Amino acid sequence: AGAPMKTIGLRSAVLAFLDSLSVRYARRPRTVQTYRTALGRFLEYLSALGVDPDQGAVSDLDPILVRDFVTFLEGRYREAGRMLPASTRQTYLAALVGWVNFLLDEGLWELPAEEARRLLRDLRAQRGRPSPPLPRLPREEALSALLQAARSRPSSRSLRKELIRLRDMALLLVLRSSGIRVGELVALRRGDFDPVQGLLWVRHGKGGKERLAFLDAAAVQALQAYLQARDGSARGKAVDHRPLFARHDKGAGDQTRPMTPEGVRRALWALAREAGLAETLTPHQFRHYFATRVLEATGDLAAVQDLLGHASPTTTRRYARVSPKRLQAVHRQAFERPESPAEDREEQ
């Protein structure tokens, strides 16, 4: 006889899976939180069907209930007059597939091999592979208006307000010329900035990867002005470990605390209001702008992939689809070249 199957409750099994994502697989906190939300909804769904997540055991879980979860979600969205977003479907099913695989691998759910394969196959089939939405590029006018708003802020006798003014200018120029993610930006330390070579060392990229990000002269100058005003002539290892972009709101007090992604978004919102913009540019739109600008200037998708830190060229190719200048150049090359006499005769 084989080893007895481990018995575990449904909620406990979800918590064990989430712990394994952090500890064993080193998944990013944001991914773990997304899966936590998705599986929390799954447990709510079981409760609505009369299955108590705290009392029910994984060993008693009916595969049909797992398979029908997305159908249940679609019904709830329809009742509210909406469609289940494709991204939500993908995320919830990814979490569910990961959890089922965890249960099977750990021997917590004893399903016949063929039934387990069929369940996973059905879940993956429900995910589908819809094309991700095209990147939304910021208008050049909106970007210029944001920069003008930052430049128009008057110098202030208040050190806190002056630091915010200098920081936000540097923030805009760094986002525009580096193409880094907002999560990467707020993780930067002073020691990651090399003003001589005009680069940033991104040590906390997506998937734990490291890479270099490059800055133009305007971004380097603005960043140096901000850091000089903030930290003066301080030097040493302690300074190198300080955040590159810090909070200067009253809640930060006298400590040098790093900005958060939400803090970066709020800074952009404030500038958008000052610029009189109806739309607010997000940090990720600056990344889209950067990618498209580099692609239009070089036509080199491989270089864009490396600069953005993309693991797959498929992700980068999306920018080739939203670069109107590049497409127009290709069109002109095809249709505005002089036609040869032979071609004229063929058309006649």
Rank of each mutant, 00 (worst) to 15 (best):
R317S: 15
D231W: 15
G251A: 13
P154T: 01
V202T: 04
Q285G: 06
S233C: 01
L104G: 03
Y319K: 03
G198Q: 06
A297E: 12
L166H: 05
G107A: 01
S155V: 02
T256N: 06
K237R: 13
G9Y: 00
R293N: 06
A113W: 00
A150V: 06
S22M: 09
Y45L: 07
G2H: 14
S178W: 01
L10W: 00
K206Y: 05
V14T: 09
P133T: 10
R345L: 15
K161S: 11
A303H: 02
F193S: 11
R151C: 11
R151L: 15
R129C: 02
G299N: 08
E74M: 12
K6V: 12
L108R: 08
G183N: 15
R67T: 04
A142S: 15
F245H: 04
G299R: 10
F214E: 05
R332P: 00
L163F: 07
V264K: 04
P258G: 04
A270F: 13
L295V: 00
Y35A: 03
I8A: 07
G9K: 01
Q33R: 15
L111P: 04
H310D: 12
V58N: 03
D192M: 11
Y35W: 04
Q224A: 13
P135Y: 00
D52T: 12
F69M: 04
S340E: 14
R151P: 13
L227V: 14
G276C: 10
A229Y: 00
L223Q: 04
A246I: 08
P29V: 09
D19W: 06
L10R: 07
Q197V: 04
P53G: 14
V100A: 12
R11E: 12
A311F: 12
Y92T: 08
D249E: 11
D192H: 15
E106Q: 11
V239T: 08
A150R: 02
A217E: 14
V202R: 02
G309A: 05
P29I: 10
R76L: 12
G253A: 10
D62Y: 06
L146E: 06
S59V: 09
D254P: 01
A16M: 01
